[in-house]
Amino acid sequence: MLLKTEALTKNFGGLTALNKVDFEIQESEIVAIIGPNGAGKSTFFNLISGYYPACSGTISFLGKDMTRTPTHEFACRGIGRTFQTTNLFTDSTVLDNLIIGYRSKTKMGMLDAIFNTSRARRDEGASREKATEVLEFIGLTEVKGQPVGNISQEAAKRLAIGLALVTEPRLLLLDEPAAGVNHGETNELAKLIKKIQQTGTTVCLIEHKVQMVMNLAHRIMVLNYGSKIAEGTPKEISNNERVIEAYLGGTAHA
């Protein structure tokens, strides 16, 4: 088992955004999290990627407790993520984004930089190589020199995924990777996600596009008002009474 949460809870003031969620993610599967707007999906991601500290409950990854681990350690231990609103280093180029993304895997320090030691050169070379490899993988080689402000929305989404991939994650968390892109592009992104899983990376994604989720996911968790209301295969979920109710009764957005 890759990741396990127990009674994971997050409050914002009086609001319980996530309420005692138990969940497990197995190695090399694609799992999806769905639920109406404001259900707590992104909050769940923010907790299991160390972006927010949990109020109570535990997170363990590869059998190790991560509940009190600082944010940057999550990436080092193998959890990569994207954000719902595409988050990139806006003041640099596509390639440079990926080079920085590899930083946590490199070891060079200040003195290496000043004296341009062999380690510095090795690290710079390795970063460039890794970045180029990921560029190829996400299909953005052609725009590598462009400032990220100049690339299309779909390219930005791919780059955000690439930025997470470059940290060589065991578990990749994707928050609405296909939001705001057209149908054809959505299919392309689905292919990319499939490809990522096939290289051995476990993927967990949040998505409102039901079609995409049903095709991709092996397993689905449904959140509503911060609580888990269902979990199962796409087939089970699409026949689940509570899920149908949540979507029809709540602020439906499917």
């Binding site: 990627s49 972006y51 944010t71 940057h72 350690e73 999550f74 990436a75 080092c76 993520r81 954000f83 988050n87 990139l88 280093f89 806006t90 003041d91 640099s92 920085i100 993304g101 930083r103 946590s104 895997k105 930025l163 470059v166 940290t167």
Partner: peptide
């Protein structure tokens, strides 16, 4: 520079 641009993103990338 990446920290200047986005501290959150940098931390998410393991920096």
């Amino acid at each position: 520079k990446s920290i200047r641009n986005s501290e959150e993103l940098a931390a998410t990338l393991g920096i």
